[in-house]
Design a protein around this nucleic acid. Structure first.
Length: 766
DNA sequence: TACTAAGCTCTTTTT
DNA sequence: GAGCTTAGTA
């Protein structure tokens, strides 16, 4: 749609006709601080897009509008929708995730704080690897200081704008560390930031922290951007953390034209520092704020909306809001109990097959949601068997695969030779005879000479103490130099192809004819194709440099490369990834205590509340039909553990539930798996209100017996009597499969029949 | 130095 | 079961 050249107008533009009154108000009120509290399914994205379109309609240059989202998916979706309303002009909007927008700003401004403009972005793997290196160098035990834990704490500090220096002076934090016997955190933090800085690298948090630092210390720069962004919109405001909050506050300080949209009930990112207080306090920060509440749900049936509310109402911390719907009542939520993960998969696949037939629905209408990425496997298998096409969102992203990261590391290193994490990946891959010994000498020299690793490599001839590895290192250095020489004259695709071939990476993978090898080779080809597309895509106005490609890749973690976005397939994803999406029919699997809610969340009430909000998000993705399922047992670390249904099922008012396949009848199923009894019977249910007969807390598993060793019972025969370390005595009834997959069905005296994978079974023949 | 086998540890979600 | 680290061997 093109806008006529008309005066700024306060009249309602015609394209807004089909908005409902509260939505309309939120769209028309463009100036001054605005908060929109938008319940699930209330047309939030619609309001945001129309609002932006309306601002553009009023004559504001899209170049002066900043719209921040949390995921790339959300940004892309919104851009498309706005483009439909305002045309190609929408491309000039500053719209993207916090990280991508601020990385873009940092490319222009980072030099003011001593970073090169071609800084590298470290992903979590790089950060973790750097932490490990530091721990090793500082001789710190990585059992006590687990890299993930250290990283989490550093991230927490950064998100709260506590620098390493501040950390040393923060008594509360220091005391906490001392109390937990981890007094060296501050030193590690300092070492980490120093190393990142020297490597010209920023991790995800640094992108925000450094933006904030520049805005804070360089008024001229802040001023520039404050005046550039005349209108600021923040989506999912409930998920902003402190530093994001501070940045947006600073940017909006001049014009006060800030609009935040959110739903406190859908705040699910506290684990990465999101502060629900930001939305709760918005009214305090901007006293003349206008607040609009969108409470009508247009998406889901009454049953789904009410069921969601009945769970979320158990949370104490909430904004007042009443979500309702005028939609039909709809079907009850079907809850199913399954013996195992695989049975669960089979059942879900069957239901999907039936619903497809009965209601003539395409695959696209279905989603399977789960708490953890690992749960997708059983579903995949079942769907493949049923012949239903599916697509997994998230999980191990394409760009996190080893071979892809290897090539990207070469490219990263060429752009920024201070990037030591990249160097570590590539210096001896493909193997070129620079082993641990040589690398350690290099690191030693680097420290001794106070030079970067790359400096040492370039001047390796002046260090004869390097030993036999010298010439090999020299060759490596020259090869990289030759790549660097090409960066100015060669486009990203040609350079990447050249690198892939010259380094021998292509050849190494090509020669590997195993199934994985072939797929790895294909992935490299795919990556190169991706770079080519990036180069040839003339829609994007960004420069086609390799550096820009690398940035896009580093921050674009949520979407798999998919050649055919219109493919008709079922969506499989985590609940987190599903935020903002909707599907006619949703299957929510793995509704088991300790899985969802996660075991780790059961420690304190706040985290449990977040899990509850997560459940709320999951349920409200469904438009018409919702299925909940759980398994009574599940394999974990190679052994079968009993599971209990999630407390969240219990919290739903039972009048919304169809429990025919879950509760009373399933008692029979339940008892058939008699091994469960052993673990469950220790705790009787405390509440007779519960719709389940199972208790909420599983008894601990019996301790392991160190005298038992896994495997090595290849001579096992049917009829043998065995002793299992946990399950006791039994007789082998059947042996199936071969080699690594060999399994034995054993009738145990006390707990009934079990199928054990011999490779992992800890038992011996009596 | 490079490759293989055995051993140990892991529990979440994302930019 | 998987991914990673260490120990052992060529």
């Amino acid at each position: 749609m093109n806008w006529p050249d008309q005066e700024k107008s306060d009249e309602v533009p015609p394209f807004l006709d089909n908005l409902n009154p509260p939505q309309m108000q939120a769209v028309l009120h463009t100036d001054g601080p605005v908060m929109i509290i938008a319940g699930a399914g209330s047309g939030k994205t619609r309001v945001l897009t129309f609002r932006i379109a309306n601002i553009v309609h009023k004559g504001v240059d899209p170049f002066n509008i900043l719209a921040l989202t949390f995921t790339n998916k959300a940004a892309k979706e919104m851009r498309n929708r706005i483009e439909k309303l305002v045309g190609g002009n929408a491309r000039n909007l500053w719209m993207g995730t916090f990280h991508s927008v601020f990385a873009r700003i940092l490319r222009q401004e980072a030099e003011r704080i001593g970073y090169p403009s071609n800084f590298t972005i470290y992903d979590s793997d790089d950060s973790k690897s750097l932490i490990k290196t530091i721990l090793k160098e500082m001789n710190i035990d990585d059992k006590m200081y687990k890299p993930n834990l250290v990283l989490g704490r550093i991230s927490m500090a950064k998100n709260n704008l506590i620098t390493a220096k501040d950390y040393f002076q923060n008594e509360e934090l220091i005391n906490q560390d001392k109390a937990s016997n981890r007094g060296k955190f501050a030193d590690i933090y300092l070492a980490y930031t120093t190393r990142c800085f020297k490597a010209g690298a920023m991790d995800f948090d640094d992108i925000l922290v450094n933006t904030h630092m520049i805005f804070k210390h360089h008024v001229d720069i802040l001023n520039k951007w404050q005046h550039k962004f005349k209108y600021i919109l923040v989506d999912e405001y409930q998920d902003t953390n402190h530093v994001q909050y501070m940045i947006t506050k600073k940017l909006a300080a001049v014009t006060q034209n800030i609009c935040v949209v959110g739903d406190d009930a859908q705040s699910i990112y506290a684990f990465r520092g999101a502060n629900i207080q930001n939305i709760l306090n918005f009214e305090r920060d901007y006293p003349d704020v206008s607040t609009y509440k969108l409470e009508q749900n247009y998406r889901s049936t009454q049953i789904i909306v009410n069921a969601a509310s009945s769970v979320i109402k158990n949370n104490k911390k909430q904004l007042e809001k009443k979500v309702w719907t005028a939609n039909e009542e709809g079907d009850k939520i079907k809850v199913t109990r399954n013996a195992s993960e695989n049975d669960e998969g089979k059942r879900v696949a069957e239901y999907i097959f039936q619903d497809k037939q009965n209601e003539h629905l395409p695959n696209k209408a279905f989603a399977i949601l789960y708490r953890t990425n690992a749960q997708s496997r059983a579903m995949e298998e079942a769907l493949r068997r049923q012949g239903i096409d599916y697509r997994i969102y998230g999980g191990t992203s394409f760009y996190q695969r080893k071979e892809v990261k290897d090539l990207l590391s070469y490219l990263r290193f060429v752009i920024n030779p201070n990037d030591e994490e990249a160097l570590k990946r590539i210096i001896n891959y493909p193997a070129r005879g620079i082993g641990d010994t040589s690398l350690n000498r290099l690191i030693y020299l680097s420290g001794q000479q106070n030079m970067g690793l790359w400096e040492v490599i370039k001047n390796i001839r002046s260090f004869p103490e390097i030993g036999n590895g010298g010439p090999k290192i020299e060759n490596f250095g020259m090869m990289i130099q030759s790549f660097i020489g090409l960066t100015d004259t060669t486009n990203a695709f040609d350079l990447a192809t050249h690198v892939a071939k010259q380094t021998g990476l292509m050849r190494t993978l090509f020669e590997d004819k195993s199934v994985e090898g072939i797929s790895r080779y294909e992935n490299i080809t795919e990556l190169l194709n991706g770079i080519q597309e990036f180069v040839e895509d003339d829609e994007s106005e960004k420069d086609k440099t390799l550096a820009n490609f690398l940035e896009e890749v580093a921050l674009y973690t949520d979407d798999q490369k998919d050649k055919d976005p219109d493919r008709d397939c079922i969506s499989l994803m985590t609940i987190h990834a599903s935020k903002g999406l909707e599907f006619p029919i949703v299957h929510l699997i793995g509704m088991e205590e300790n899985l969802f809610p996660s075991q780790m969340a059961l420690m304190n009430r706040q985290e449990l509340e977040e899990e509850r909000r997560l459940f709320y998000v999951a349920v409200t993705r469904a438009e018409r039909k919702l299925y909940l399922s759980f398994a009574t047992s599940r394999f974990k670390y190679g052994s079968l553990i009993p599971c209990e249904p999630s407390r969240f099922i219990d919290e739903i008012d039972s009048k919304y539930l169809d429990m025919s396949l879950a509760s009373m009848k399933s008692k029979a199923v339940y008892q058939r798996n008699s091994d469960e009894e052993q673990f469950v019977s220790a705790n009787k249910p405390t509440s007779n209100k519960s719709i389940f007969t199972t208790p909420k807390v599983a008894a601990p598993l019996p301790p392991e017996d160190p005298n038992f060793v896994a495997g090595d019972i290849s001579q096992l025969k049917v009829g043998d009597m065995v002793q299992h370390q946990r399950f006791g005595r039994g007789v082998v009834a059947e042996i199936e499969g071969e080699g690594q997959n060999q399994k034995a069905k054993v009738n145990f005296d006390n707990i009934g029949t079990k199928v054990l994978v011999l490779k992992f079974a800890k038992m011996r023949i009596l």
